[in-house]
């Protein structure tokens, strides 16, 4: 069974003027069909206003499609009866770490989700401990969230979702408000969840560097899926990505420019390591000649 499946999903924002008359309709998500398998790590890329966040909110049933259908773990999200099941199955982490932490102490915040779904007290404590350990924040359990860094706060948010034992986590630009170190911290935690706990991850971001470890990448533009494929396939199409106003990772860009100047490099180089390897290979070949 597919973890997430959308069929011709369309979502329209209706803008109204002060009297409530319809001023205009913006189609944020336009006819999107995609499948995500259980255990997969997918990334959705796109510049601001491409509809990626709107798409994400459908997976957690915060928004309901205007047209089309979304299934999470086989359940239709527009069916009211499935609402809480779906929110438990697909947890969501948002952009602003301050605005999603409810508790005044780290451990209380992580316990908030399990409290809501009626888990007995003793098991809440077990879940809180296990989730905080999974994101490496157990030592901070007694801290006030106000005293943590942005990356730490986001890890607490992830633990808060984890404590509800979801099958899938949707992260809506979790690193947009963080510094580079915080970003690394969060992405590392997310990858560990996917590798170790086998949780399906949907990472929404506009930093391409964060998506290179994904199994598949979707690039969204004006509500539609513009590109799709393994990171290497997607990133090798540098011109098209530039057209979609996305910044290609610097290494990939450098490799691409070198390639254009006639160096024999493979397509879609993603890491510094790969590039150095390739370059030293080329140098060694030249010396032999």
């Amino acid at each position: 069974m597919k973890m997430i499946k959308t069929d011709k999903l369309t979502y329209e924002y209706i803008r109204r003027d002060d009297d409530g008359n319809v001023e205009g309709i913006t189609t944020a998500v336009d006819n999107v069909s995609l499948d995500v398998d259980a255990g997969e790590f997918i990334a959705i890329l796109g510049h601001n206003g491409s509809g990626k966040s709107t798409l994400a909110k459908h997976i957690n049933a915060i928004l309901n499609p205007t047209h089309g259908t979304v299934w999470v773990d086989g359940k239709d999200t527009s069916d009211e009866a499935n609402l809480w099941d779906i929110r438990q199955t697909a947890g969501m982490v948002f952009q602003n770490p301050d605005n999603q932490i409810i508790g005044q102490v780290v451990e209380e915040d992580v316990g908030f989700g399990p409290e809501n779904i009626g888990i007995p007290t003793r098991q809440i404590w077990e879940r809180v401990e296990e989730s905080l350990r999974a994101v490496g924040m157990y030592e901070y359990r007694k801290y006030s969230p106000n005293k943590l860094s942005g990356g730490q706060k986001q890890r607490v948010s992830i633990a808060g979702v984890l404590a509800m034992h979801p099958k899938c986590i949707v992260l809506d630009e979790p690193t947009a408000m963080l510094d580079p170190n915080g970003r690394k911290e969060v992405i590392r935690a997310v990858r560990a969840l996917n590798d170790v706990e086998k949780i399906t991850v949907v990472l929404i971001t506009h930093y391409m560097e964060e998506t290179i470890h994904a199994d598949r990448v979707f690039v969204m533009d004006r509500g539609k899926i513009a590109m799709e494929g393994a990171p290497r396939e997607v990133f090798s199409q540098v011109d098209k990505l530039k057209e979609l106003r996305l910044d290609v990772p610097q290494v990939t860009l450098l490799a691409y420019e070198l390639q254009k100047r006639g160096l024999q490099l493979p397509n879609g180089i993603l890491t510094v390591q790969e590039l150095t390897q390739e370059l030293s290979r080329i140098l060694a070949e030249r010396e032999r000649k």
Binding site: R87, G91, M92, N116
Partner: peptide, 13 residues
């Protein structure tokens, strides 16, 4: 607004 959404996403009812 954000907080309300985050709370609902975590099954608060």
């Amino acid at each position: 607004n954000d907080l309300a959404m985050a709370m609902e996403a975590r099954c608060y009812r």
